[in-house]
Structure formats: structure tokens, C-alpha cells
């Protein structure tokens, strides 16, 4: 096990009235294992993305802990947590997530240079762009890409650091069948390469690539059998 959520939940207040709140994610335990692709499925608004963001160190849980190699990531100072996320976690956020001022290639290379000034990651970035099928667009800007091409850029960016954990939030949204297959195979290959992969999706086709499948319903997570 590399990443573990221990009794985490996320509660939001609807307004200043403290009694008026709801749980986006109810008290949940979730382990992610090396070499496994875990999928969470469920309807929109069921709390899947909230759970993923809490696992990625992007959203503090209301209660509970998220442990990376036994360390509570939310107990770390912001700088250390940011460095940990940069080095060990590759996140594919939902929707368009490229920086419009940078080219496709620069977007993919940016995580590498976040805390490093030297070294050359251009070859690896090129290789990843080729794997996701957008190498020819390396010098294009995000506003020149289609929605699907933007998603593939985000996947290449998440893999640039060869992270231990990959958290993908609807990575196949906006993609055609062929590209969906390419992306899912890429995530499967990452899991086979001893990474812990979490795939949040509402597409049933994607579940066949998973080792474990969970269902999220009204903020409650349940593991699906078989």
C-alpha cells in the first residue's frame, strides 16, 4: 500500500448557519496499492472528484487522514506537501487544465522545472506526447487544441515525473473511442509498472481495466464485488 485514506470525509456549509451543512464525502477508508488500478465510478456530483482531490493533497478533509508511505500528508507544511505532490503524485484534473501562456511541450515539462533549474526533460516529454498521440502539436498553444487533445496533454504532464501515484479524474471525457482506449491502456501500463493508479470515471467501459472498482453514491463509497 502506498496511499491510504483513513476515515476521511468532506463537509460543506450551505450558508453561515452552522447547522445547515452536507457531506460531499462521508467517512471513507480507501487504500491504493502499488501495481493496481483502482476505479471509482458513480454519477456526477456523487463526491468522486472531491475524494480524489483529498487524496491528492488538494483539499483538506473535514476529518480523517491521508497517509503517503505512512506519513499524514495534511500534517505537512504547504511547501513540503507541494513538493511531495510535485515529485510523487501525477494528477489529471477534470476539464481543461493547461496553462494558456505555454506551448503543449512547455506545459508537459513545467512540473519538472517547478523545483529544478537544470536538467533536460525534453526527450521524455516528447516521448510522452508521442504515446498520447499529440507530438505533432508540441509547439501549439492550448487554445489551438481540441478538448480531447487537452485531456491527453494533461495525462502526459501527469506522467512526466514518473510518479508513484496517478490520480486521474475523468481522463477519457471528450475523447473518442480510439483515444479513450489509448489513455486507458496508458494508465493500465502505469499500474503494471508498479504505480498506484486511481481512475475516477462514470464510463463503464473503463472499469474493465481496473483491479478494484468502487462505487460512489451520495458521498458514500462501496467496493463492488467481482
Amino acid at each position: 500500500m502506498i496511499l491510504k485514506a483513513e476515515g476521511i470525509s468532506k463537509r460543506y456549509f450551505r450558508n453561515t448557519n452552522t447547522a445547515n451543512y452536507f457531506y460531499a464525502v462521508k467517512k471513507t477508508d480507501l487504500p491504493l496499492f502499488r501495481g493496481e488500478l483502482t476505479a471509482i465510478t458513480g454519477r456526477s456530483g456523487s463526491g468522486k472528484s472531491t475524494l480524489l482531490n483529498m487524496l491528492g493533497g488538494l483539499l483538506s478533509p473535514t476529518e480523517g487522514r491521508v497517509l503517503y508511505d505512512g506519513r499524514d500528508i495534511y500534517a505537512l507544511p504547504d511547501k513540503e506537501l507541494s513538493k511531495l505532490r510535485n515529485a510523487f503524485v501525477g494528477i489529471v484534473p477534470q476539464g481543461q487544465s493547461a496553462l494558456s501562456a505555454l506551448t503543449v511541450l512547455e506545459n508537459v515539462m513545467l512540473p519538472y522545472y517547478m523545483y529544478k533549474k537544470d536538467g533536460d526533460i525534453k526527450d521524455r516529454a516528447g516521448e510522452l506526447l508521442e504515446r498520447v498521440g499529440i507530438l505533432s502539436l508540441a509547439n501549439a498553444y492550448p487554445n489551438e487544441l481540441s478538448g480531447g487533445e487537452n485531456r491527453r496533454l494533461a495525462i502526459a504532464r501527469a506522467l512526466i515525473h514518473d510518479p508513484d501515484i496517478i490520480l486521474a479524474d475523468e481522463p477519457t471525457g471528450d475523447l473518442d473511442d480510439e483515444n479513450t482506449k489509448t489513455v486507458l491502456e496508458l494508465l493500465r501500463a502505469a499500474a503494471d509498472d508498479k504505480k498506484a493508479v486511481l481512475l475516477v470515471t462514470h464510463e463503464n467501459d473503463a472499469l474493465s481495466y481496473a483491479d478494484r472498482v468502487y462505487r460512489m453514491n451520495g458521498g458514500e463509497l462501496t467496493e463492488c464485488e467481482g
Binding site: 507541494s82 505532490r85 494528477i91 484534473p93 517547478m114
Partner: peptide, 16 residues
């Protein structure tokens, strides 16, 4: 703000 959120996703600290 979404652009800044993406920077956080790839590991930028608040200070950065």
C-alpha cells in the same frame, strides 16, 4: 483562478 489551481496540481506551493 483555474490556472492557479492547475499550478497547485502540478506542485506549486502557495508562496510560489
Amino acid at each position: 483562478k483555474r490556472e492557479f489551481a492547475v499550478l497547485r496540481v502540478i506542485g506549486a506551493s502557495r508562496k510560489r
